[in-house]
Design a protein around this nucleic acid. Structure first.
Lengths: 202, 202
DNA sequence: GTCTATATTGCGATAGAC
DNA sequence: GTCTATCGCAATATAGAC
């Protein structure tokens, strides 16, 4: 069965925007790659920017789902929260391989309309992690002098950097099927080990 | 004293390319902001891309310096190597606040001519850190089952992510003068703690 | 070394036929 | 819903005066 023009445009745009950036991709290239007429971009999405916004919102569906889940079923402990968060992120990276690229791209070179979308989700994740770390410090799990804001950035960096640089990283090392999951497992371990309160130093 | 057109163009281009990306900045905007005639871009740099390349190469001067220093005066131990590396990176971030942006921007959306520049430096850093981790594992400093490649990505993520997202990060938290150094100090601590071999678990 | 003027190409968007 | 044709504009780059 043949996909309709709208779907083909979204799928093609996701790839091209992620790989080349919003301004580098023209609607002509987009239409050619998707094998549809370029006038259909205006017809379905109003403009090139409208198409981009649709792509961007689609990228965040799984993040929204995860955040909803954490609100409905809060994990038992801070360590469990962070572990579950990391595992979710690993799965999301598999299903939305370009998500981090879009986020970083927007952070570095914000586009007018969509800054609001990105910031909305980032601030929700930020608040969730902040509360989790706060709780963990209060419970004595994490180092008491830990700067929470910094720790959040470190966690974000350690969990996401791999997926930004994955293509270039694979040029320097060997690869495997489940490399993303393997990476996140070690990264989470390093981070948790790094912020854990060491009983023997008390 | 008045700066010459060439210098003004380089300085303006560094800012604009970093903030908006190569394709979003036009030579007209560049010339207007630098208060020089737009034809001078071709005159001095051959093309917009030539100007970009010049900007990019300038960004890596301090990285090259650091790598040369590590070759000439190798640190005494792996832990010292990584600590010194982190401190150097923190200083470089202060003096070249856009460096990480350029690197990440090139990784996400590579431009034709300059991919070679970026990859050259990344691979040199990668090799240095790989050797350092190898040595540290052999010496029993770091966890013996550590995946070296992953650890390098984690270190890069933890050290650099802050500087990509700094503007947006500052919207979520309070700031101070030396925030970059404060961040890198905690991040390095977290990372080293995270990969250290724990004597009490032997 | 710096300017104006312009050649050329490609862009995003739309009108209107089918 | 999809097409062709085209409008208006902005892009990079360059020729040639000063």
């Amino acid at each position: 069965m043949e996909k309709d023009a709208r779907t083909k445009l979204i799928e093609t745009a996701t790839q091209l925007f992620a790989q080349k950036g919003f301004n580098t991709v023209s609607i002509r290239e987009l239409a050619r790659t998707a094998k549809v007429n370029s006038a259909l971009i205006s017809y379905y999405f109003g403009s090139k920017e409208g198409l981009y916004q649709e792509v961007l919102e689609e990228q965040f569906i799984l993040i929204a789902q995860m955040l909803r889940m954490f609100e409905e079923i809060p994990p038992a402990s801070p360590i469990e929260s962070i572990t579950l968060y990391a595992k979710n992120i690993a799965v999301i990276h598999q299903q939305r391989p370009y998500l981090t690229r879009f986020i970083i791209s927007e952070i570095i070179n914000p586009t007018p309309c969509c800054e609001a979308v990105i910031k909305k989700y980032i601030s929700r994740i930020f608040r969730f992690l902040h509360a989790t770390l706060e709780e963990g410090i209060a419970a004595g799990d994490f180092k008491p002098d830990l700067n929470r804001d910094f720790a959040i950035v470190s966690l974000a960096g350690i969990m996401n950097f791999f997926f930004i640089g994955k293509p270039i990283f694979l040029e320097f090392t060997s690869s495997s099927e489940k490399i993303g999951e393997e990476y996140t497992a070690q990264a989470l371990d390093t981070f948790l080990n790094g912020i854990l309160r060491r009983k023997e130093h008390e």
